[in-house]
């Protein structure tokens, strides 16, 4: 089942987050991740929701979201023309023996070291979620103590319109 990224512009009203997430649970649709943050418009927030579903299912979700009074705009983002980011913080077991190896991989992924202790290294990576998935897979070899991900946020790229013709 393909994952889908839905970007929603919503009025800042008490309860609008519950109303939105309630729609998903009521209709039996799973939310993989959800981020809420202020938007460029005053009084409005942007929610980025990752869910799974085929085209028809996503169309249904889109229509149901549009019905909610506080939701002003719903965009289904095309993964090919969008910038998609996730922020991950993870604490990996790394002692003297494998610390260098962990750091090497982290560097390859452009991940920053944010803390080091005798037995662990804490890394930060902001990237396309698929890259993070691969990064986390690799780090599993050393043992992951703790893992936090913020969930996906995404923005569509502006496609330059061809002039003339």
């Amino acid at each position: 089942m393909p994952t889908q990224i839905i970007s929603v512009l919503v009025e800042d009203e008490a309860g609008s987050l519950t109303r939105m997430s309630g729609m998903f649970s009521r209709r039996g649709i799973n939310i993989h991740s959800l981020t809420v943050s202020p938007s460029e418009k005053e009084g409005m927030s942007r929610m980025t929701i990752v869910t799974t579903g085929d085209e028809r299912e996503i169309e249904k979700v889109e229509k149901q979201l549009n019905k909610l009074i506080e939701i002003v705009k719903v965009n289904i983002l095309d993964k090919n023309t969008s910038v998609v980011r996730d922020l991950c913080l993870l604490k990996v077991y790394a002692d003297k023996e494998n610390r260098a190896e962990v750091i090497e991989i982290a560097n390859a992924f452009k991940s920053n070291i944010v803390d080091i202790s005798i037995r662990t290294i804490t890394l930060e990576i902001a990237a396309d979620p698929r890259d993070i998935d691969r990064f986390v897979e690799l780090m599993k070899n050393f043992g992951i103590k703790e893992l936090f991900r913020t969930g996906v946020t995404a923005i569509s790229r502006d496609v330059e319109k061809k002039s003339g013709g």
């Binding site: 008490a14 309860g15 519950t18 109303r19 309630g22 009521r26 009074i69």
Partner: peptide, 16 residues
Amino acid sequence: TFGITMPITKHNFLVK
């Protein structure tokens, strides 16, 4: 009441 009636109405308000 706001939470209880949210999924069973078209819309609801709590007037503050």
